[in-house]
């Protein structure tokens, strides 16, 4: 049985075989020093302040102000969300001091997710969707449910 305690964080060792010319890795040695609890609490209060700001920005006085100067309310809200996102990723998930390879995964996923969001947004505004009267549909559903006692939209599931 292997010494189980020998799990000393491999990434805290500076591995002599890696730095320098061995290709692509660059700075992937984690700093041995960890942020302090005080630092984490500080970040928490900033995040909290941003969250409160978000809730207020979405409510009436600010809503009107932003509309007044012609800025869609989504813009400040998305900026605040991005700030929170980046702070959590950088400090709580330690991306700031960890290997850039880890950030690469998150960034790749984010780029694809945002690319998908924007492309779908564009494509679906361009193609004409069947007009859909949700109120009439709901009434129809309620009627069906009243007469048959079961939901009309669910078919017979499995075999």
């Amino acid at each position: 049985m292997a010494p189980g305690g020998n799990m000393a964080q491999r990434d805290t060792h500076s591995n002599p075989g890696v730095g320098g010319p061995l290709g692509g890795h660059g700075d992937n040695v984690e700093h041995a020093s960890h942020p302090t609890a005080r630092f984490y609490v500080l970040i928490f209060f900033i995040l909290l302040a941003v969250t409160i700001a978000e809730v207020f920005v979405a409510q009436e006085p600010f809503l009107g102000i932003f509309e007044g100067i012609g800025v869609p309310i989504a813009v400040p809200l998305l900026i605040l969300a991005a700030v929170k996102f980046l702070m959590i990723a950088a400090f709580y998930m330690h991306l700031k001091q960890d290997s850039r390879a880890f950030s690469a995964f998150l960034i790749a996923g984010l780029i694809l997710a945002m690319g998908m969001l924007f492309t779908f947004g564009g494509l679906f505004t361009a193609h004409s969707r069947e007009p859909f009267d949700q109120i009439a549909w709901r009434e129809q559903l309620a009627q069906n449910a009243g007469t048959t006692g079961t939901s009309a939209t669910t078919g017979g599931g499995g075999h």
Partner: peptide, 24 residues
């Protein structure tokens, strides 16, 4: 060449995947 913790690397790869899942 090992220098990163593989489990952390695996977790981050999984989180990258999760980004696209929630993105969808």
């Amino acid at each position: 060449l090992e220098s990163l913790d593989v489990r952390k690397l695996g977790m981050w790869a999984f989180l990258g995947s999760e980004c696209v899942f929630f993105g969808s």
